[in-house]
Every structure is written in structure tokens, then in C-alpha cells.
Design a binder for these strands. Structure first.
Lengths: 352, 352
DNA sequence: TATCGTAAGTAAATCGTTTTACTAGATAGA
DNA sequence: TCTATCTAGTAAAACGATTTACTTACGATA
């Protein structure tokens, strides 16, 4: 029996605002302990009779009791929250990876905080710090250099740095280069131009390098004049447009372009069209990523597909597993996923 | 002077893990009170001599002390976190609004939790609940129906429901319809087809209605046979493609299409091309939104621009202001932003 | 009749901060 | 010398939950 009946407070159903466990307990004339044990279906609640349990559940329902997650997190020393760091949100690429991350986390009732670094050095340092202060349990970095010391596990999607404790999820780039160049070679292309990514993109070096290696292997000579580096920060096709313009200005003939990604491929196609060159009749253009826009561009893009959604999902899964099995922490430092050649309409047989 | 020298613990600099205020205080032989006052530069710390302050700052630096945000939030009864609810992340639309939200929040060191509802009823209820349990201070809903009772202020971007406490950020749709139809009329179009949005899109009804009203005003008759509703959940141009196919199948001539949005416009263009109709020579296509892809599609899209980034920023600003000035809570229930006609290459003079 | 076990709970510690109210000692003023 | 003020702090409560270790009353058993 409740010993302190006089302390009992009769709650008025609040139209707004929330009820705490303490208030609910006072209303019922019970201790917070009992309510907590019952509401969380703790095995320690066996000795509480069903009648009391029912009263508790009913009151919780009636007053719409919601446990305060912050209090719970503090006590449990867990936040059930990840941090995600992206270059910026609206580039198509990050959003698809994020989608994969979310799909896995949502199933476990985890949430995530997103922070964009916009390629700025200060944010590359500050964002992870702030995420860690907010007690995220793990960090997913997407196409982002790791410039911080972390107290939590990290998976870097498209990361290539070898950092202890950081797992990289990467594409099989060798295979990607092979798929792309074989496709172009089979179509009879011999003069192939290449768009190299911006310096800040994690994949820039490896992608370029594997393309050059594969070209050599396939006895395709890539003329240095036909290599253009993308310049600019915005995730707009404009950077591909500008680079393609420079290629054309160099006045060295080529029949195919291996673009850094779909966005720059789309920009390049615009430049070619303005120069009265038809894609794919005069020039074949090969993209990379297979973002949403690729399939419905005109012409639709032949591209090397990266399984972006799956890469995000894999990153989240890996981190969740690591949280559950800390022992296996450093088992696997790199996770590789496979690319796929998606043939559409932007590539065709080389002229003559 | 510290009275309990014997309790002092000498911390070993931890290679990993974090130091709590308590540990740091013990190491310095001071109370957590003093450290807290000093580190937070509280005015109550005036009586602490500079020398002691220096010791505190130095130790905090040395051991890389980071206050635990969860503990701080619990105490302050503030989370400095927003919740954002979107249909799904990778549709181009949500990402741009989100970008605007983030740009405002980041400046104030706020973060946000994102949840996608995928148009599923259960998630439309559960997601907001979970966000509120996690003590978000406000919610930004993007193109999402409000199906929950909220304990925190809400701004609904593209929301049209009249709910107490919910501020809607909406486009001036009347103006948008006017801009679009005047443009098409000026180009001589008389048979205009319309793509109506899916039922789940917040803007579907108002956009369709204002277009019909404006058409009447401008004496443009819109043939009911030339109205097609989009069907399907994915944010893919395919739904526009399918709808345009149906329009063509109806075999009623038209020279222009007012699409529901850019994504569906892109799909429709593909359908027209397959039917050997040139855009814009045979058919003009008018998009809506001005997503990134619009400018670089081929042909580039003439479209009614929604200032999506600004709408997100406005939503975040409004909520922050509301948190600071609770009195003005219900002052403004609707915030309207202006559309802009962006003329590009997908529209042209009507044939003959 | 003493004691044991069980049913039905509860008190208090804890998580890591912040903040209010306080204290002990030193100095200054009357 | 006595009081008031200042200096340099500190103790303890609070935020809202969870969890460990207890208590009390009652019925059954030896």
C-alpha cells in the first residue's frame, strides 16, 4: 500500500507538454522504480501483481507518457545515434548513400545527425568534434577525408586513407576501369579523353590511376592533352561543361570521354552539343555512379554503376556490428563492393 | 586550498576515451563547480584568480576535455536539436530544402535528426513520436502531412493543412500558375496538357486548382482528356514517362505540357522523344521546382522555380525565432515565398 | 514460537553536467 | 576588538530515467 497518500498528486490531463515518470508515479501512489520496471518489462518486475501492472500501463497510456530519451541515454551511456559527415547534401551522391545508412539504422531505432563540411578545413575538424560531444556512437564519413582523432568507430564510404580504426568501404576500382575501358575499346574507340576529379574527392586519385593502368594493359594510349581535371566546388554539371570546353579548345581529336562522374558527364554532353557534336554519334560519353538523373538524361548515360545505397547500408551495418562485437574491431579494414557497367545511349561505335 | 589532497587522482593521459569533469576536477584538486564556472566563462567565476583559471584551461586542453552534451542537455532541458521529416531523401527536392535548413541551424550550433516516412502511414505516426521522445525542440516537415499531435513547434514546408501551432511555408501558387500559363499563352499554345501530382504530394491539389483557375481567367480551355495524374511512389522520372504515354495514347492533340515537377517533366520528354516528337519544336514542356538537373537536361528545362533552399532556411529561422520568443507563437500561420519563371529550352513557339 | 520465504514493493545511487546557496578565512573599517 | 566585506572557493540539488540493494508484512514451516 502506498504509505504517503497525502503526497499523491492528481494529474490533470495536459493538453500539451509531457509527463515525467516521477509525476506519473506520484499520481499512482507508486515509486518510479516500480513504473520503470513494469514499463520496460524488466524480469525484475515478476513480483508485481498483474493488477498493478495494468494500472501502470493504463496510466502511461492515458497521460501519453514518453520516456525522456536524453535522461535514458545519460544513464545507459548510449545515445543510439550515429553521426554522418558529407561534403554537401544536394549532390545526388551523398543523398543516395545516406538513404542506405538510414534504411539500416531505422530498423534498429537508431537515428543520425548529419553535418556538411562543404570542403572547408575548419568544418572538417569542427563537425566531427561536435558530433562526438553529442555522444554519437559511430561516424559514417561519406567521401570525406578523416582529419580528426576519433573516440568512436568510423566507416569512410569511398575512403582510401589507411587509418587505424577506420574501415573503408570502397568500390573495386580496378574492375570499374576495366569495365569502362573494355566497353569503349569494344566500340572501337582509340582516342579517349578522361575527366579527372577535383582534388578534394576521395576517389579522384584511385580512379584516375586505375584507368591509366588499365589503359596500358589494354594497349590504349591516353594522350596527356586529353586529360582534364575538374575544377570548382559545386555539385553542378557546370564543372564538367567547363572541362569539356577546355578539351575541345585543345583541338586534339577524340571519340570518347571517360568522365569522372555522371554529373560531369552531363555537363560535358552539353558542351559537345553546343559545339555541334552529337553524343553518341560523334563522341561517346561514359559516366560514373549511376545517379537518378543518369537514366533519364537525353541521351541516357552509359555509366559505371556504384551501388551507393548498398554502400551506405553496408557502412551502417558494419558499425552496428562493431558496436555489438567490440572484439572483432580491427578485423576488416576494407570492404569492397563491385561496380556494374550500365549500357545506355551515350556510348556508341566509334566513327569510321 | 584543496582540502582533500589525498583524494587527488593523477590522470594518465588517455590515448582514447574521454575525461569527465569530475575526473578533471579530482586531478586538479578542485570542485566540479569551479571547473564548470570557469570553463563556461560564467560571470560567477570572477572571484577565481587568473592563476587557477589558467590551470583549469590548461588541464582541459591537455586532457582534451569535451563536455558531455547529453548531460548538459538533460540539465538545461534543451537539446539544441531539430527533427526533420521528409518523404525520402534522394528525390532532389527534399535534399535542397534540407540544405537550407542545415545552413541556418549550423550557424547556431544546432543539429537535426532526419527521418523518412516513405509515404507509409505507420511511419508518418511513429517518426514524429520518436523525434519528440528524443527531445527535439522543433520539427520541420517537408512535403509531409501532419498526422500527429505535437508538443513542439512545427513548420511544414509546402504544407497546406490548417493546424493550430503549425506554420506553413508555401509558394505563391497563384502567381506560379500565372507565370506558367502566361508564358505558354504568349508562345501561342492553346491545347495544353497538365500532369497532376500524386495524391500524397502536399502541393498536388493547390497546384492543380490554381492552374485551372488561372486557365479560366486567361480563357484557356483545358481539355479534361489532357489531364493525367502521376502514379507511383518513387521519385523517378518514370512516373512522368508513364503519364505522358497515356496522354499520347488518348490521341488528342496538344502542343504544350505543364508538368507537375521537373522530375516528371524529364520523364515526359523521354516519352515524347520516343514518339518521335521533338521538344520544344513539336511540344513545349514546362517543369516545376528547378532542381539541379533542370538546367543541364537536354533540352534544358523551362521551369517555375521554387526557392527550395530559401524555404528550408526560412523554416529553420522561423522555428528558431519561435523558440526565442514564445509569445509571438501564433502570430503568423503562413509564410509565402515567390516563384520565378526560368525560361530555358524546353518551351518554344507553338507550331503554326 | 521462532524463522524462513515470498510478495510487493521502495530508497538511494548513478549517469555528467549546471547552478544556487553556502562557508571558511583573510582583510579592512569603525 | 568587533563587524562587515571580500576572496576563493565548495556542497548539494537538479535534470529524468535505470538499477542495485534493501525493507516490510504476511503466511507457512519446523
Amino acid at each position: 500500500m502506498p504509505s504517503k497518500k497525502e503526497k499523491q498528486i492528481l494529474l490533470v490531463k495536459p493538453a500539451t507538454g509531457t509527463v515525467s515518470l516521477k509525476e506519473l508515479a506520484q499520481h499512482l501512489g507508486l515509486s518510479t522504480t516500480s513504473l520503470s520496471l513494469v514499463l520496460n518489462r524488466s524480469p525484475a518486475a515478476t513480483s508485481i501483481p498483474q493488477e498493478t501492472k495494468d494500472r501502470i500501463f493504463q496510466a502511461a497510456e492515458e497521460f501519453n507518457y514518453r520516456p525522456n530519451y536524453i535522461a535514458r541515454s545519460l544513464r545507459a551511456q548510449r545515445s543510439f545515434t550515429f553521426g554522418v559527415i558529407v561534403p554537401e547534401l544536394s549532390d545526388g551522391y551523398s543523398a543516395m548513400v545516406l538513404n542506405g545508412v538510414e534504411s539500416v539504422l531505422a530498423r534498429r531505432d537508431f537515428f543520425y545527425l548529419t553535418a556538411s563540411h562543404l570542403h572547408r578545413d575548419d568544418l572538417l575538424e569542427k563537425n566531427p568534434q561536435m558530433l562526438m560531444e553529442r555522444q554519437v556512437e559511430a561516424i559514417v564519413a561519406i567521401d570525406t577525408p578523416i582529419r580528426f582523432h576519433s573516440t568512436v568507430p568510423i566507416v569512410n564510404v569511398s575512403g582510401h586513407e589507411d587509418i587505424p580504426g577506420v574501415t573503408n568501404v570502397i568500390l573495386n576500382h580496378k574492375k570499374a576501369a576495366e569495365l569502362g575501358l573494355k566497353h569503349l575499346k569494344l566500340l572501337g574507340h582509340k582516342q579517349i579523353a578522361v575527366l579527372k576529379g577535383q582534388a578534394f574527392s576521395s576517389d579522384t586519385d584511385i580512379r584516375f590511376q586505375t584507368i591509366m593502368e588499365e589503359a596500358e594493359k589494354q594497349k590504349i594510349r591516353i594522350d596527356p592533352v586529353l586529360i582534364q581535371q575538374l575544377e570548382g566546388e559545386l555539385p553542378s554539371p557546370e564543372i564538367g561543361y567547363n572541362a569539356a570546353k577546355k578539351l575541345l579548345a585543345a583541338n586534339r581529336p577524340f571519340t570518347a570521354l571517360f568522365a569522372f562522374n555522371d554529373v560531369s558527364a552531363i555537363g560535358a554532353i552539353r558542351a559537345f552539343r553546343e559545339a555541334k557534336m552529337n553524343v553518341p554519334k560523334d563522341i561517346s560519353v561514359l559516366g560514373f555512379d549511376d545517379i537518378y538523373a543518369a537514366a533519364y538524361h537525353n541521351p541516357s548515360l552509359t555509366t559505371i554503376r556504384q551501388p551507393l545505397f548498398e554502400m551506405g547500408a553496408l557502412a551502417a551495418k558494419t558499425l552496428l556490428r562493431r558496436l555489438n562485437e567490440p572484439s572483432k574491431a580491427r578485423q576488416q579494414e576494407t570492404l569492397t563492393v563491385e561496380p556494374q557497367l550500365i549500357v545506355r545511349q551515350s556510348t556508341a561505335k566509334a566513327k569510321n
